[in-house]
């Protein structure tokens, strides 16, 4: 898919909307930043490449005016889920879809080049070439992609008004999606408990995970900060941090679209998406439900069956 094609669509859409949300170059060559385009001159600066990781659909519910947004396949699930839950007015949104073969995790790239400041980035043939003061390094995108890309089922957006490129099919087996969860479950109970305690202990409660999450609808009225009800204190103990992340995960049960934003934005590198992914794997298993794929669906926690096929009464 060429950036030119994308710009063409942006220019076409611009007159009908207040803003087109896309990406532009950030403070250095590896950081791409969201770009709220208002004019044709802005559109000239738009970019699309494997560094366009951020899920731009997450801005939609906070915008009142008609907006166009550029989405990858994974990001489009956010829009589907918004439609399910009535969080956006579909007629007020123009979706520019991009078929995507995988993006790059900036954290993984930085690690691969020892966190040297990046002087230049080039792409060639499923590879990313990083130039630092220590020289050039070529990395296969498949090796530095976020985990979500490894099992991507929706390379082409599920909903769109314009598609910049030709639709592509997923090549990844559907069973692979929750393999990491199954692998993790092989650890003993104690190991898992210690793992989460250690990880969540790093949390500084900056709430980047919450604010970046497209499905975290409470946002400014988050229960993590209110004193009425007083769910959690402001103390910095493991219990309080764990509680916050449990709240986040449980509120997303059957709603998490697995965009991975929570994990991407965490400045402390905590695998915050793990809990949500686990819940999703259970939603799949219990209700054969995948969030964010069908606008007509109802999130499984918002409904029930009188006879639940897969929930059996537990014996003591």
């Amino acid at each position: 898919m060429s950036t030119e094609k994308l710009k063409e669509i942006i220019l076409k859409v611009l007159p009908d909307v207040d803003t087109v949300i896309g990406w532009q170059e950030g403070f250095d060559k590896i950081h791409i930043t969201p770009f709220f385009m208002k004019s044709p001159e802005d559109a000239e600066k738009a970019v699309w490449n494997s560094l366009c990781v951020q899920n731009l659909a997450a801005y939609l519910p906070s915008l009142k005016k008609k907006t166009a947004v550029i989405v990858k396949g994974c990001d489009s699930r956010t829009i589907v889920q918004y439609m399910q839950e009535g969080l956006i007015d579909r007629s007020n949104v123009v979706i520019i879809g991009i078929p995507c073969t995988g993006v790059v995790s900036v954290k993984k790239v930085l690690k691969a080049v020892d966190y040297q400041p990046i002087e230049d980035v080039k792409f060639s043939d499923e590879k990313i070439i990083i130039k630092t003061s220590k020289g050039e390094k070529t990395l296969a995108i498949a090796d530095v992609c976020p985990d979500k890309c490894k099992t991507c089922q929706y390379p082409t957006p599920i909903v769109y008004d314009h598609l910049a490129g030709d639709p592509i099919e997923s090549t990844k087996p559907a069973e692979s999606v929750y393999e990491d969860i199954k692998e993790f479950e092989k650890k003993s109970l104690e190991e898992r408990r210690d793992y989460f305690k250690n990880e969540f202990d790093k949390c500084i409660r900056c709430y980047a995970c919450r604010n970046a999450c497209p499905m975290c609808v409470c946002q400014d009225s988050c229960i993590a900060e209110t004193r009425d009800p007083h769910w959690i204190t402001q103390k910095l103990s493991s219990e309080e941090k764990m509680m916050f992340h449990m709240i986040h995960a449980v509120h997303l049960a059957g709603r998490c679209v697995e965009c991975g934003e929570c994990e991407r934005v965490c400045p402390m590198d905590i695998p915050v998406a793990k809990l949500k992914k686990k819940i999703n794997s259970e939603m799949k298993e219990l209700f054969d439900y995948v969030p964010g794929v069908n606008p007509e669906d109802k999130p499984p926690m918002y409904t029930f069956n009188v006879e639940e096929a897969k929930i059996k009464e537990h014996k003591l």
């Binding site: 898992r192 408990r193 989460f196």
Partner: peptide, 17 residues
Amino acid sequence: RRRLEMLRRLLQFMGID
């Protein structure tokens, strides 16, 4: 029933029997 079943499985995942 749905919520608590979900929770039960999440607790086990987090290392709470």
